[in-house]
Design a protein around this nucleic acid. Structure first.
Length: 414
DNA sequence: TGAAAGTCAATATC
DNA sequence: GATATTGACTTTCA
């Protein structure tokens, strides 16, 4: 459910409001209403491909709340789910915003992020799993697309209506503030708040922070202070940056690892060792290999940044967002780990289930399932490279973990 | 209590 | 206009 966001709540008349309405409270949860139709879909909006398997318990039928469903859910293949969702949305010209607000109770940016960089199931908290369960349910609903289309139409209608009325108002009312969206928190004009301007870090600052990160993924307060003053940033900005970067790097690494693992999905075997070593998957370092074109040495920071370790290029974080789980992101649901996927479940029901996810596991399945057109296999050299990287990563991660247990960063050994 | 996870929402980019 | 990125913030967890 949409969180009670700190400062801003959506304007009542913002599009979110309709979404909130439908997402809030699972009584009115779209999923609950979908659930009545949760059954092997009779139609496939995206064209007769594999269909959801691993059926989830039906909240409507079972009286389960979404949280309960999440808790009981078998391991889902987050990559396959997001891939499928993207596909359906694209095919039907449905936007992330509408989908997010209506189905997931999330904002567009969150949806984009989620779809592009899904975390493996085993790394998600219960809360983090919720959107995936919602997506799964949505995919299982044969009328999901229609419903969203309807919603889209309704929104458009409402928008037109608002526009019309604001137009006519602006004719009759002097001042013309009517109809203006006070987006965040629906403030009245008198309350025009003093919004904190968003900090936008320049490339140099980012570069410097990345280098500092390579030195110390967990900088000491002193280092943070130094960085902040040298870069002329607030310490909180530096702290936030490190938090965000660590977290985002980690997600990239998950994806890299999965790809490097040559198609072993996050779900397989209850999480492949390399993945499940989750802790081990939590490397906060770059890969430690000599990467092509490392970041140039930046001068003047005065914090002893070295460049000998091979930098985490932007590439690591930014250039591979396509990794969003399309290509080699296979992964089969591990039915054996599922308390729900009993003998009658779709596990092993060849082809019925989207989440049997045969799609990427073997080329022999390619013809009958959904091999992504968008997912050209990487060449073998890349794969080798990735495997190497993964191995290196694990090594580094291990050391990082050791290092992390030492309080004094100076004791960290790299 | 600090780090991670999760998310929002402003802004950039396509 | 839709999507991607990312700084900031809240919640969760160990």
């Amino acid at each position: 459910t949409p969180k009670t966001s700190a400062s801003c709540s959506p304007a009542p008349e913002s599009p979110l409001s309709s979404a909130e309405e439908s997402v809030n409270g699972l009584a009115g949860d779209p999923l609950a209403s979908q659930s009545s139709s949760l059954k092997p879909p009779s139609e496939d909006p995206s064209g007769g491909e594999s269909q959801p398997g691993t059926p989830l318990p039906l909240p409507g039928h079972s009286g389960l709340s979404i949280q309960e469903m999440v808790a009981m859910s078998p391991e889902l293949d987050t990559y396959a789910i997001t891939k499928k969702v993207k596909e359906v949305l694209t095919d039907n010209n449905l936007g992330q915003r509408l989908f997010g607000e209506t189905i997931l109770g999330l904002t567009q940016g969150s949806v984009s992020d989620l779809l592009a960089r899904p975390k493996p199931w085993h790394k998600l908290s219960l809360k983090g799993r919720e959107p995936f369960v919602r997506m799964q349910l949505w995919l299982q609903d044969p009328h999901s697309v229609e419903k969203l289309m309807d919603m889209k139409r309704l929104e458009k209608k409402a928008y037109m209506k608002r526009r019309l009325s604001s137009l006519s108002d602006s004719h009759s009312v002097d001042g013309g503030l009517v109809g203006v969206d006070y987006v965040q928190g629906s403030q009245s004009p008198g309350q025009q708040h003093l919004k904190k301007p968003r900090v936008v870090l320049g490339p140099e600052e980012k570069e410097a922070l990345k280098k500092a990160y390579q030195q110390k993924p967990y900088p000491s307060p002193k280092t943070i202070e130094e960085l902040a003053s040298q870069l002329n940033l607030k310490t909180s900005t530096v702290i936030n940056w490190f938090h965000n970067y660590r977290s985002r790097i980690r997600r990239e690494l998950f994806i890299e690892e999965i790809q490097a693992a040559g198609g072993l999905g996050p779900g397989s075997d209850g999480g492949s060792p390399s993945l499940r070593g989750s802790k081990s998957g939590e490397g906060d370092s770059c890969d430690g290999t000599e990467s092509e074109g490392t970041v140039e040495t930046r001068q003047g920071l005065g914090i002893g940044l070295e460049d000998h370790r091979g930098a985490c290029k932007d590439h690591d974080m930014e250039a591979e967002s396509e990794a969003g789980g399309s290509n080699n992101s296979p992964a089969q649901i591990d039915c054996t780990t599922s308390g729900l996927a009993g003998p009658g479940s779709s596990c092993g029901q060849g082809g019925l289930g989207l989440f049997s996810l045969t799609e990427a596991t073997s080329s022999s399945h390619a013809s009958s399932t959904n091999i992504p057109a968008s997912g050209p296999a990487r060449n073998p050299r890349d794969n080798n490279l990735r495997k190497k990287k993964a191995a290196n990563l694990n090594n580094i991660i291990h050391r990082l973990e050791k290092a992390a247990s030492k309080e004094d960063p100076s004791e960290w050994e790299f």
